[in-house]
Amino acid sequence: MSDTLTIRDLHVAVDGKPILRGVNLTMQRGETHALMGPNGSGKSTLGLAISGHPKYEVTQGSIELNGDDVLAMSPDERARSGVFMAFQRPVAIPGVKMADFLRHATTNIRQPDRKEGEELIPMREFRKELKGKMQQLQMDVEFARRYVNDGFSGGEMKRAEILTLAMLQPKFAILDETDSGLDADAVRLAAESIAEIGRDKMGLLIITHHDKLLVHNPPDFTHVILGGRIVETGGAELAAELHSQGYERIRKAYPQDDAENQAMLETEEPQSIG
């Protein structure tokens, strides 16, 4: 049986301020979806709400994974049931080495019933696997000894998120601008790696403002989000249109959502995560 992630009529607020206003989205494992929309339209918010960020309050609607209520789960339970998000702006964890962090994460994800304090996967085995994945991503193995995201360049952070994706092998992965901050070669490498790691094996929700990721991972569906609502869904050709023409047509077709989007942007505050 294929895995299904179902989002129905999702409303999300931050500090009482509504941001998502009724998002519907169904994904099957193996499908690739593109989520596109102008700045501040709610793309990251959707990912963070799916992941269970405590600040993002679901005021209405449901999220289900194979019929299980995702909203009732803590962030780690969601991760262990196979939901993953590569962050637009990952946070640094000083003093914690990438390798130790990933070993613990990988153990918990592969053994979802593991209790606190139980054995982690053997160091030797883990190191070997990690090294293999890092080589695949053309990452220096020294990288694993650095502290999680601490002092990483923008590009390094994104590559670390892809490495994490490769290790955790989720059922569904939300990739939030995993191509931003990468130079041209790195973007191509990221796009190819994601295709190799995730395409067909996972349900991918690719959030992007560029076309490189989508060239290597042509979307089965493209969703356009504006003012906190998915206003249009199409195929790969819709993504292509948005890349070449921008959001002009969409804004005109959905003036009310466009107004919502503008209103949200005007009250925008600096974010620490997303």
Binding site: S51, G52, S74, P75, R78, F87
Partner: peptide, 10 residues
């Protein structure tokens, strides 16, 4: 939260 998304309990 970030660690939670990577499977760590609180």
């Amino acid at each position: 939260f970030y660690a939670g998304c990577r499977g760590f309990t609180r």
